[in-house]
């Protein structure tokens, strides 16, 4: 009887803790990244060279949120690799060399380190290369971060959509929604959790007000509504998410409880 009583007390404590955790921290601690599938489509039996080449690919993506599958298809003219996420084709690659850097890149390493260090989120600004368009959104972003009480725990990075070093990252971001590739506007992605990218603000929608709404989303108490339908798309990343630092957000809210509502 006494044991049951203690169990109920502990359970109630855990439930109450879960409800006061903020979205950014809850997602980092509890929501594993969704899996991608890299599918090698081929028609003829594969030879030893291709087998070795695929093994190399598998070794390269071993630690990432992706699985490798081989599929025999009779109707394809030549073999290729298809990158899928949630049943949607993100990219096609003709040769294995094109997969270099698929799951890891310098910018992704930096962003992951920042998320693991307890930052609230990372604002990733995807530029078009058209200076006038890019500057407008960048100014709004800088102003929003400066005026936010959480500005110190938000980092910001710029990335060109034509970047060669970060080709795969830019490509995955442009697949967060299926029409983004065709829109030549700057885009602002909020990155949080285990490299989850929110659907972006874009073009003239990159306003201070909308950026503050995005920050409010990350700092909100994690309600069941959010947990059941997490927005965003997980980005491919080869790394571990064990033992992140305590969220820096908690200290700010502890010092200023009025910011927590």
């Amino acid at each position: 009887m006494k044991r049951d009583y203690y169990r109920i007390i502990v359970l109630a404590g855990l439930v109450s803790l879960a409800c006061t955790t903020r979205v950014s921290e809850w997602v980092l601690l509890n929501a594993p990244a969704n899996q991608y599938s890299l599918i090698y489509f081929h028609q003829n039996p594969i030879d030893e060279t291709v087998r070795k080449q695929n093994q190399k690919v598998v070794d390269g993506i071993e630690m990432a949120n992706i699985q490798f599958i081989r599929v025999v298809r009779s109707e394809i003219p030549e073999p290729f690799y298809g990158l899928y996420y949630g049943g949607r084709l993100f990219s096609k690659y003709k040769i294995a060399d094109e997969l270099k850097g698929l799951c890891s890149s310098p910018l992704r390493e930096v962003i992951a380190a920042e998320l693991m260090a307890g930052k609230l989120c990372v604002m990733l600004y995807l530029k078009t290369g058209i200076k006038e368009k890019d500057e407008m959104g960048l100014n709004a972003l800088r102003c929003a971060i400066e005026s936010s009480p959480f500005g110190k725990i938000i980092t910001m990075h710029e990335l060109s959509r034509n970047s060669k070093d970060e080709y795969h990252l830019a490509s995955q971001l442009l697949n967060v929604e299926d029409d983004l590739n065709d829109i030549q506007e700057p885009m602002l992605f909020g990155i949080f959790g285990r490299f989850k990218a929110l659907e972006p603000l874009l073009g003239k929608g990159i306003t201070e007000e909308n950026i503050h709404l995005m920050i409010d989303y990350f700092t909100a108490e994690c309600s069941c509504l959010i947990k059941d339908a997490l927005p965003g798309t997980d980005i491919l990343f080869s790394g571990k998410w064990d033992n992140p630092q305590t969220a820096l957000l908690n200290k700010i809210i502890d010092d200023n409880p009025s910011l927590g509502y």
Binding site: P200, L201, N210, L213, Y217, A220, P231, G232
Partner: peptide, 12 residues
């Protein structure tokens, strides 16, 4: 984006 609509309406 649904998150923006929800955030604007206070649903989340």
């Amino acid at each position: 984006p649904k998150w923006l609509v929800d955030q604007k309406s206070g649903l989340t």
